[in-house]
Write a protein that binds this DNA or RNA. Structure first.
Length: 562
RNA sequence: UGGGGUGUCGCCAAGCGGUAAGGCAACGGACUCUGACUCCGUCAUCCGAGGUUCGAAUCCUCGCACCCCAGCCA
């Protein structure tokens, strides 16, 4: 058929891909260069993953390259601790910046020289107004600003002042370098923006070499230009900054003038994404740290058991656009399920054990069954599952008075123990309080392995674990961190009040089939009929395994009940 | 009331004047030793009102709604 219209079959089209495709086709660029420019002042979250996948994905798909650049222009907020985590996260997601690791702070001298040039051209001046005074003159959204009395300083005076700023002769806040653009501009970013401020603090990379630091608007475009970035992709709130981005590069007559393109940041329901709120959750101990499995941080999601593949798939399916969007958490959850369904071996684990004794089954005798590691993928092999007279089943799989539509175990009813036998409930034992503590069943010896000798249909199949062979484990069930779709949104004065009290449930004394003893930190399992689980990377140890539930299985029975 | 954006199915999202892709969800059905998976099938006339055109989600006009901007943060 045709042709070059869709250069990347299988990849969803989006407006940025279209721009890149056009630029390549028209010859504007012969290859592309993008960049992911985090500020090292916090941990990466799923929203950053969208940007990482976009930038690195573009480079990968179009045969270009993507730089990792730390936007470290504000030493008062940044820390090396974050850099390590960010690098680690990008790698974990499956991307590689190769040799292209950069720091805005490496360009400090160039920024400075460029500033000197702007001053010489009469395009920048040192302002001695205080922050408050400057704000007062900035005007409002509706009224133009007024020019600073220092705006007309001569070039030589500005040069001198700026050099002395660098030399540390002034106090923090006393002087600032501003661009001379237009105090009456309807775009507030163009009302003589500040491009340098004095900060007498150590920078984690440049130490005390500088006491003046460039602002984002000034540093970012020049950094992009220095690195030969072709497409500088950022989020919507920088749209208003684009005229400034272009202004600086135009005035500097930069040989390379990247195109800034803005896209809508990711919003995910039932969680929060702002660095401030995430930080508060950690500091106020509302969660267990940045890597709490309920957090939308990459370290949290990873500990929860999400795979990089699933995150990439998620980012691919949500698409890229310019309209403010709100992605439902279920889309993310669905992405892991889709991935783990294919690769996670199956196993049986009983979370809320109910003792089941098989009457007539020889005491002290053990048997073994073959269980498929994956029902649809024979290549994943089998494992042996030990069986004995007493097993544990899920409490949920037994109802003394079965609800309508319930087709698991109940008095007088037959059910299949997966891979083992068809059993029938004969009686139940209760404790003094009336709680069922044991179920007694008969079994059909002819159904060994699980299939009915007479071909009768057994509607229910339940999972189980042999009591004498079981290993004990702790299991942590996670649910959404917040109970409302948009925590802190309308009618919610504080997002904290929307925290979901049931976002974590810790179960101890869970019973696992013995093969699970071989789990390693990178193992993923589907506990049949329950969901996907993995060992907790922080708290699990061989003597006392701890499993995290990554996601539940879809459960139409549960939905039916609602 | 200034400026910059956005508005296509419940949630995302293609579409770029030629007669509304896809994903998720939902619903119906098949299959099933996981009420899972898989598989079939159903599911929009494009914020509103005018206009241009043989023909408009796509062009024009006028509205409406929502988001962002007044850090010496990014």
């Amino acid at each position: 058929m045709t042709t070059t219209e869709t250069p990347l079959p299988g990849k969803a089209a989006n407006f940025i891909r279209n721009i890149v495709t056009d630029d390549l086709k028209s010859g504007k660029h012969k290859s592309i260069v993008t960049r992911f420019p985090p500020e090292p002042n916090g941990y990466l979250h799923i929203g950053h993953a969208k940007s990482i996948c976009l930038n690195f994905g573009l480079a990968r798909d179009f045969g270009g390259r993507c730089h990792l650049r730390f936007d470290d222009t504000n030493p008062t907020k940044e820390d090396i601790e974050y850099e390590d985590s960010i690098k680690e996260n990008v790698k974990w997601l499956g991307f590689d910046w190769g040799e292209h690791m950069y720091y805005a702070s490496s360009y400090f001298e160039q920024f400075y020289q460029h500033a000197l040039k702007l001053i010489e051209k009469g395009l920048a001046y040192v302002d001695s107004l205080s922050a408050d005074e400057m704000r007062a003159l900035r005007g409002t959204l509706n009224e133009p600003g007024k020019e600073s009395p220092y705006r007309s300083r001569g070039v030589d005076e500005n040069l001198d002042l700026f050099r002395r700023m660098r030399a540390g002769e002034f106090e923090e806040g006393s002087q600032v370098l501003r661009l001379k653009i237009d105090m009456a501009s309807p775009n507030i970013n163009m009302r003589d923006p500040v491009i340098y401020r004095i900060r007498k603090v150590e920078h984690h990379r440049t130490g005390d070499a500088w006491c003046i630091y460039p602002m984002y608007d000034y540093a970012h475009c020049i950094s992009d230009s220095i690195e030969g970035i072709t497409h500088s992709i950022c989020t919507l709130e920088f749209e208003d900054h684009r005229p400034l981005y272009d202004w600086v590069l135009d005035m500097l007559e930069a040989p390379c003038h990247p195109q800034q393109i803005e896209f809508a940041r990711l919003n995910l329901s039932y969680t929060v994404m702002s660095k401030r709120k995430l930080l508060e959750l950690v500091q106020e101990k509302l969660v267990d740290g940045w890597d709490d499995p309920r957090m939308p941080t990459l370290v949290g999601i990873r500990r929860r058991g999400f795979t990089p593949e699933s995150i990439r798939a998620f980012c691919e399916t949500i698409g890229v656009g310019k309209s403010d969007s709100f992605i439902d958490m279920s889309i993310l959850e669905d992405a892991v399920r889709e991935d783990l369904n294919i690769r996670a071996p199956r196993a049986m684990a009983v979370l809320r054990p109910l003792k089941l004794v098989i009457e007539g089954y020889p005491e002290g005798e053990a048997d073994e069954f073959e269980g498929a590691n994956h029902p649809n993928d024979p290549a994943m092999g089998t494992r042996t599952v030990p069986f004995s007279k007493t097993v544990y089943i899920e409490r949920d799989d037994f109802q003394e008075e079965p609800a309508k539509g319930f087709f698991r175990l109940a008095p007088g009813r037959e059910v299949r123990l997966r891979y083992a036998y068809i059993i029938r409930c004969e009686s139940v034992l209760k404790d003094a309080s009336g709680e069922i503590v044991e179920v007694r069943c008969s079994y059909d010896p002819g159904s060994r392995g699980g299939s009915a000798p007479d071909g009768r249909k057994i509607k229910g199949t339940i999972h189980w674990v042999s009591a004498e062979h079981a290993i004990d484990a702790e299991v942590r069930l996670y649910d959404r961190l917040f109970s409302t779709p948009n925590p802190g949104g309308k009618n919610e004065p504080d997002y904290r009040t929307s925290l979901n009290p049931k976002s974590i449930e810790v179960l101890t004394g869970c019973k696992m089939e013995p093969s699970l003893a071989a789990s390693t930190l990178d193992s993923r399992y589907q506990f049949e009929r329950l969901g996907y689980f993995c060992l907790d990377s922080k708290d699990s140890c061989p003597q006392a395994p701890v499993f995290n539930r990554t996601a539940t299985l879809r459960d139409s029975w549960n939905e039916q009940k609602r």
